[in-house]
Design a binder for these strands. Structure first.
Lengths: 339, 339
DNA sequence: ACGGTTTACTAAACCGGTACAGCTCCTGCC
DNA sequence: GGCAGGAGCTGTACCGGTTTAGTAAACCGT
């Protein structure tokens, strides 16, 4: 016989389907003795619930969605997402919730997927990342009424609960460290200007520069790619008065920038200090290893997952969780500027 | 009103549920005129099928599974998987099939997931990667009778269809290139010995060495991590008669090895040539950029997805697809050995 | 004009669970 | 002794689709 159903178990145990359902879901309605007997039979028959049948009864779909809008071939270059994914998985799988992952080309397609998955009842909630300035996705998700957790910054994201890291403090800690070393001309290769965290970092740098009396603090927007990171670094290093330190918004650009410096004969850290806003193997394995901001992305993923499960359980739950502020791991790419 | 059902459409159109089902699925049983009317109403009401309800009727679950057995925190370091994933997605999403991704700790847990997802009817098929020597998963998947495509090498994998790349030819092309440059002592930092492709590469190197009359061709097994890559490189370079070229089984190890060489004052490519078996941004952005084997992993993912969909449509379909042999992209990490 | 086939559709069963009203005992209490 | 209340269970409706048996009308050839 193929796949046993609760009806099979009921027949075997000589009870009704309802009783079996009660027993298997650990809810009152059957005696402890009967429950044990049913559980044993289910075990013996290797019964597993049919996820579709469960979902049909208006209950959970047992899955959550994560949709990324990026050019298909560029995903996975950044270790950040892989780490986040691992953390999400770790927590979701404990509560036997599956993760549906989809990579699409742009935000319009992403919204379309939210609509489709919601109306197909395929998922119970969403994780929203890469928060943009005036993000159109928030409105859609609120309208759909799907439990959603935003991985973003402080402040309101409509009525959606959020888990966030303090980008501002993180940037301040980097700038203060560089200023303490004696750097006065600092450049910042920022990410996509449309992202909220990019804006927060740019603002933090500007504020810190004013407060610490830096003579220069320039933020250049990029698309996070190694190509733009390299190009912008080349431009910066070709100037007459070049910066003595560059802060890169991700590890890929930082490594590319390091390559450019080496190629142009600019000594790191002698003539140029490099700091990466993301830590990963990448930052560790290059030479010299890069000073980088270490955040526990895996933990972040776990927290987001936990928050989402809480919201699914109780849609009224208001979550606004600040994760530990990342700390700077000093390696060999930063030093006192040579005058 | 929330989510419209086919019953709502049927009422609106003044026909039965069955007629609506026929119309929406493009099957005979209704007149063209009625079909159009029903389609318009469905469109207007923004109807979408409830995926659970469909799956319950013994039909497709509309999803496939990919399970990776690796320590959770190490995933995503390798661009290879991200690329593969993108390719899979691209093809699956065209056929509106979702991809369920799960990362588990070991093979036992992986098998458990196959069992669970199959019996819960959560997926219609699986993609099997990281094929091992005498892989226990194959037997389980055959027993479960789930459509599965193996991403592996040539040869039999039970009765499972497969898509594969020619690792042997790839390794031969690298060795022949290095031999042509004049290298006679070549080392190979291999991956996990339990993997089939590791064994194939080791064998290919040994055969080529004999044929080309190399004086040394050593394969050292590792766990693919940057740490072991660095450690093994250090050992090799500390020997009296050090190799003049090292082939790394992935990009992460190659970059780590490059770091070690730089640190030890061994010039690349002057005193040591480096070749990576995987190409990615990583290989491009370090300095000097690495000579690497370029395979179109994105395309590979698309092909695997297509193959799996074909097997799901027709379980008897026998697929055995060889992908284009990867080609060597020569950059600046390889040169004629200095004597 | 008649039997036979085709077309267009309806009604109901079915998939495998969950939810709930209702029934039968048994116990406790005044 | 009678009644309330609860434990333990049954039976059935229901979720939203698909599928099948059945039916009425139209069509067809001779």
């Amino acid at each position: 016989m193929s796949r046993p159903t609760i009806a099979d178990i009921a027949r075997e145990a000589g009870v009704s389907k309802g009783a079996v359902s009660f027993a298997l879901n650990g809810r009152p309605g059957v005696s402890e003795e009967t429950r044990q007997r049913i559980l044993q039979i289910a075990e013996r028959m290797k019964w597993r619930p049919h996820s579709a049948a469960r979902a049909l009864g208006g209950a959970r779909a047992g899955a959550v969605g994560l949709v990324l809008a990026r050019p298909a071939r560029t995903v996975g270059v950044e270790p950040f997402f892989a780490q986040l994914l691992s953390g999400l998985q770790a927590e979701f799988s404990v509560r036997s919730t599956a993760l549906q992952l989809l990579v699409v080309e742009d935000t319009a397609a992403e919204i379309e997927v939210y609509r489709r998955w919601a109306s197909e009842h395929r998922v119970d909630g969403f994780v929203l990342v890469d928060l943009q300035v005036r993000d159109p996705r928030i409105e859609v998700l609120e309208e759909l009424g799907m439990p959603t957790v935003v991985l973003g910054g402080p402040g309101r994201h409509g009525r959606l609960p959020s888990v966030w890291a303090d980008d501002r403090e993180a940037m301040l800690s980097i700038v203060e460290y560089l200023a303490a070393l004696g750097h006065r001309r600092i450049a910042h290769l920022a990410g996509l200007p449309a992202f909220q965290h990019t804006q927060r970092r740019i603002r933090a740098l500007r504020d810190a520069a004013r407060r610490l009396g830096l003579s220069e603090a320039l933020s250049l927007p990029t698309d996070f790619s190694d190509a733009e990171g390299a190009a912008a670094t080349r431009t910066l290093l070709a100037r007459r008065e070049r910066p003595t330190a560059i802060i890169y918004d991700n590890d890929v650009m930082a490594v590319a920038g390091l390559g450019v410096a080496t190629e142009m004969g600019v000594a790191v850290p002698g003539e140029l200090s490099i700091v990466s806003f993301d830590d990963s193997v990448l930052a560790r394995i290059v030479h010299p290893p890069l000073t980088a901001l270490s955040r526990d992305t895996f933990l972040l993923g776990e927290q987001v997952a936990r928050a989402l499960l809480a919201v699914i359980d109780d849609p009224a739950a208001a979550v606004d969780l600040k994760t530990p502020t990342p700390r700077l791991t000093v390696r060999e790419s930063t030093a006192v500027p040579r005058d």
